[in-house]
Amino acid sequence: MYSLPDGFFQRIIYILQHFGGSLLRGAGLTLLVAFVGTVIGCIIGFICGVAKTIPIEKNDTVFKKIMLRIVWIIIDVYVEVFRGTPMMVQAMFIYYGSLLVLGIDMPMMFAAFFIVSINTGAYMAETVRGGILSIDEGQTESAKAIGMTHGQTMFNIILPQALRNIMPQIGNNLIINIKDTCVLSCISVVELFFASKSIAGTYFTYFETFTVTMVIYLIMTVFFSKLLRFIENRMDGPENYDLATTDTLAHTSGMYNYPDKKEHKK
């Protein structure tokens, strides 16, 4: 065994020197699971949210009406179950359940991605539905009025606007996932919390180790919240626009972006 130095900061430096690698690997795994889980969760959420906002028209066939209702019930049950139970319990239930009942020995990483994805998907389904409902009815009406089908309206007009509106919530989910992957330690996924607990347990340096862990979590979450804000700003596009004219008078009549401005910036 190594000898542990005295003093809080010396111990932190000691931990970083000897266990920095395993903390970083844990942090990397946390990010990987959180990121993949959020992306797949968003895809699930978009599919569910879009399915739940398909309108039933008067002229639809009975088959379509019944199928749609069945799909809606399945989505509702899915959302209630996975939003209404703790992720930690779901992890135990799915990981050990699949092994004992179904005889499937899930690879650890698959289980991690799976659990985080379906959990995020359950939240995102409602978020996407809300995002779609938040778009002014006039957008749908004018898209229909030029002859778009419901699908074309959804993908070309409504979803791009809904996506922009729910970006803050997607960011929320990513950050929640970065933190909440720590519950996967209960099925022995060696993410940041599991790695920290092992290190802390070796020397009984709980306070020092978890100080480091706190900082690592905070760096990750702050980084991603800034990144998402940056992406949101990019989605909004520039404040000004270029006038597509060679008429110089137009530029002086109170309109935007005199071309010279761009030259100055370069």
Partner: peptide, 14 residues
Amino acid sequence: RSKVGMVFQSFNLF
């Protein structure tokens, strides 16, 4: 509908 255009009071540009 594609043969019958509609202009709205509230514009409804995309």
